[in-house]
Design a protein around this nucleic acid. Structure first.
Lengths: 205, 205, 205, 205
DNA sequence: TATGAATGAGCCTTCATTCAT
DNA sequence: TATGAATGAAGGCTCATTCAT
């Protein structure tokens, strides 16, 4: 790889990092291109060599960051020696719990993702890794389903319900402690998730 | 109430209605004060006699509109002759279903509310009616709980989980048919809600 | 007329005059809105209260200035005591000569008009006066035709040929002394005009 | 001539052709260097190895294209078996008619040339061929004059008047059918040209 | 010669807000 | 109360030109 190409990648990732920093600090709509390039130390025109506009850089960030969240959680799961004894529900709860903890320690990320996430973007993020390291969560999910001794009705809707429940609930609980603290919420949330999974079981294989 | 005061209220409500029309048509951030006063037929300066800024008018609209959604649903419930035979779960499902149907027929409203809603604003909307006709849903909910023969653990968290689950799920299903159509989603959603309520039952009274 | 309205008209005409000044100094395409408002002493936003964009103010200027050229020439003609003895050809030549002299003393105007003129805009300028004082040259021309004892074939084409010949020739001769000086050109030009008119005569009335 | 030099000329002519294509498609001022090099398939910096700036390439194009117009017309004239019977007037009209027809079939070229032409550039184009094949129209014109049995006063002014008349008239008639169609205009125009030539005759040789 | 990433001044336009009327 | 002309900072974006490779 030439020096030039390395330099280009460096510039792009500098812009991405800087933009993320500012988006999470002052919010997407209040962030201007000037802000980004100013902090990144490049000229305004340079921004447009790498990104179409502000929305482009935001979407690339959302994809990358959500993908990263899942990757980290799944890696943690696989690294856990007890994981071999986990049921399907246990695995889901483990992943959810890990992601919630990540978001709890990184509330700027939570705000950024939540305010800009839709199921469509989310699905895109999970199924189309933007670079090598990024994980295809859809595949992982299907492996988990296959490993389980149960058949599940509508596995995609099931996942969807869980994601919506978790993301809505976390947003409120982590950022505003509403309607209760995260610690109080977790048992209720996880029990709700288990119930939803239970309700989608459709006999053993 | 003098004629003058009536006139004032008229202007304010004209501004509110016009703003809602445009917010739901071209989106909040792309709507300018000029747009609003232009269509409302008043001068720019007049806007500032009634509202602090664009955010002010938006928040007042969200409160009013969400409150209205609930009021309509509850009124429909009370008007239903079969309602007397309803269990607590039935009532909740009835209200949820009614609200979902309202949002399905008014997707502009759904977009507007969802993009701008947080549990905090939502709670405010439900507990502090902005004018006489607006309903305090918190009171209604407590009446429903009391009427039930069951005790419920953490009733507020339970409601919260339901609201988050419903609002996230509807947004996707109604606007993007993702991950499935609204009709496909409803049975899964309502069964999930019944499970959540079940899990919060804590013995009979 | 209120003070405010007077003030508005003043501002508009200040902008028009300033724009003309700069257009003729540094050229239309090199003139920016900033230049105009800067010299006019108003804020940038103010420009957009009066004009749609740079093209709008240019077109309004062309109409106004060309119309003015003709008005001045015709007034001079009517004020001339010898005019009563003029034939149709004499009148046309008189007007043409007067306009050429105006353009010769105001070469910036010549540049501005020529570079931006088309027969379409020109016709518009001559037939639709933008304000009370501006003259409708089309009417004047028809009066001149009627006064003449001759019938003319295709009077509009005749005028068109004259205008194109004059405007092209003047541009070169006045601004670049090419292919000869204005004084050398005039007799040739006027003789060509007389020939063209002659050729369109179609019997007496 | 080495291979390298051929390659250079190829690049230059590619740039010229591409630029002409885009100038006539989207207009000179809306064409950027990026557009040109993008379509020509060379790097941005390369442009500056061959041309000083956008104005440079435009002027070279005008010269080349107008020269080509005349060359084609004169070639057609010489190839015409009836040409031997033509008077001076007939020859001029023949050339003018041929050029008008070329412009009528290639209106993009007409727009491009007209919008950017001045008598100075025009004279340059006709007297200084940019490459071997390009014709020196000035010489041709003098040959035509000498062949004629007549003496002409001010032959350059005569040509000038004809060129200005034709170019202004064509622009309007071809592009906007104003003040009439090209077919309607032609007889009037050609009769005017014959009159102008007539008026410059100054006795036989 | 040829490249094309980088520049940054400068463009047009929008808009929330003010204030004299 | 109500007006709407005026503001001017700030926005996104373009582009001719340079220069290290």
């Amino acid at each position: 790889m030439g020096k030039l190409e390395t330099n280009k990648q460096l510039k792009e990732s500098t812009l991405l990092n800087t933009a993320f920093e500012i988006f999470t600090t002052k919010g997407f709509s209040k962030t201007s291109i000037s802000d980004i390039v100013g902090h990144a130390g490049v000229a305004k025109g340079t921004f447009y060599l790498y990104f179409k506009d502000k929305y482009d850089i935001r979407n690339r960030l959302i994809c990358h960051k959500s993908s990263q969240l899942f990757r980290t959680a799944v890696q943690k799961l696989h690294a856990n020696p007890e994981a071999s004894t986990f049921s399907f529900e246990d695995e889901i709860i483990y992943i959810v719990d890990n992601i919630i903890n990540q978001l709890n320690s990184n509330q700027a990320l939570l705000t950024f993702i939540s305010k800009n996430l839709s199921w469509g973007v989310f699905k895109t993020a999970l199924t189309t890794p933007i670079n090598d390291g990024d994980l295809n969560f859809a595949d992982i999910y299907h492996q988990m389903l296959e490993k389980s001794p149960w058949h599940f009705r509508e596995p995609e809707i099931m996942l969807f319900l869980i994601v919506e429940l978790v993301s809505g609930a976390c947003y409120s609980a982590i950022l505003y402690q509403e309607p209760c603290s995260l610690e109080q919420l977790k048992p209720e949330l996880y029990s709700a998730i288990r119930l939803i999974i239970q309700a989608h079981k459709a006999g053993t294989k």
